[in-house]
Structures are given as structure tokens and as C-alpha cells.
């Protein structure tokens, strides 16, 4: 691990350049079109991507193959993203940073997501996969510094 104050991108670049295994992104998203689209971008950028179409599958991945970052949708078939985030906080106290990607833009929901410890809340239709991919190292770094719960 590189030491000292880090530029947010260094970790990811270091990992991507063979210093470690590529960063693992878990995307909990039930819309296959959106998930596939993100997979194309993220894998192109060198990330290892796991798609979970339900909250339950997401939890399975959390245990079996812990990710470095979680991209979380709010409307899932088995429970809401908020519930997922709450149980993540409970079951995996030191879970990786969670970014909520939802098409709900209600201020109340954004506040709720933030208060549950999401490092970021983004409206999907306003961002492109490239935007997200570009920000992932920053978020991972934020999580490493124990910045989760703050944004």
C-alpha cells in the first residue's frame, strides 16, 4: 500500500496497474439494461464488476466476494435500497463506501440516503457511466479514510 497523503486516484491507478487486484465494484441494480451499460463502462475502465439484481444477491456478494465500493439502486424487487444500506451498516460495520444511484431526486430521499451513510447520492439520468467510473477512485479513497457517513 502506498503511504502518505494520497491523491484520490492513486489507489485505483495503483491497483489497476497491477499493484493489486483491480478494484471490485458491486452494483445492486435490478434494471438489466442499466446494469449492463454500467458493466461495459466499468469493465472498460478496468474494474471488476459484480451485478446483483436483488438485495439478497447483494448480501451474498458482500460475504463471498467483498467489493471495494457499492453502487446501490433504491428500488429493488425484494426491499428498498435504504433498507439495504441500513442492514449493511448493521451486518458489515466496516463496509465499503456506498453510492446511491437512483432516479428519485426528492430532497427528502437524498437527505435520508446521506444520513444513512451513503458517500454520494446521484440521480442516474443526470450522470453518465463515465462520470461514475471517473469518480470511483475518489469514493474508494473517501471510504478508506473512514469518510463513510460523511460526504
Amino acid at each position: 500500500m502506498p503511504a502518505g497523503p494520497l491523491d484520490a486516484g492513486i489507489v485505483a491507478r495503483w491497483q489497476l496497474s497491477g499493484g493489486g487486484s483491480p478494484a471490485h465494484v458491486l452494483m445492486i441494480e435490478d434494471d438489466a439494461t442499466i446494469a449492463d451499460m454500467y458493466r461495459v463502462q466499468l469493465e472498460h475502465d478496468g474494474y471488476r464488476v459484480t451485478i446483483a439484481t436483488t438485495a439478497e444477491l447483494g448480501f451474498t456478494t458482500m460475504t463471498a466476494n467483498p467489493p471495494d465500493i457499492v453502487l446501490l439502486d433504491l428500488l429493488l424487487p425484494d426491499r428498498s435500497g435504504f433498507e439495504v444500506l441500513a442492514s449493511l451498516n448493521e451486518r458489515f460495520p466496516s463496509h465499503p463506501p456506498v453510492v446511491i444511484l437512483s432516479n428519485y431526486g426528492e430532497p427528502a430521499m437524498i437527505d435520508r440516503g446521506r444520513s444513512l451513510g451513503a458517500v454520494e447520492y446521484l440521480v442516474k439520468s443526470r450522470v453518465t457511466p463515465a462520470d461514475i467510473s471517473g469518480q470511483i477512485p475518489t469514493w474508494i479513497e473517501l471510504g478508506r479514510r473512514g469518510g463513510q457517513g460523511e460526504s
Partner: peptide, 20 residues
């Protein structure tokens, strides 16, 4: 709220792929 959520879904995909 519902309509905006449902409308944003397809826009996400169109916008995402177009940007790619």
C-alpha cells in the same frame, strides 16, 4: 414523482449509451 422516476429510467440508458 412516479412519472419522473419512470421517465428518468429510459433517459438514463439513452444518455448513458450516447455518452459512451
Amino acid at each position: 414523482n412516479l412519472a419522473s422516476h419512470e421517465l428518468r429510467g429510459p433517459v438514463t440508458v439513452i444518455r448513458g449509451y450516447v455518452s459512451m
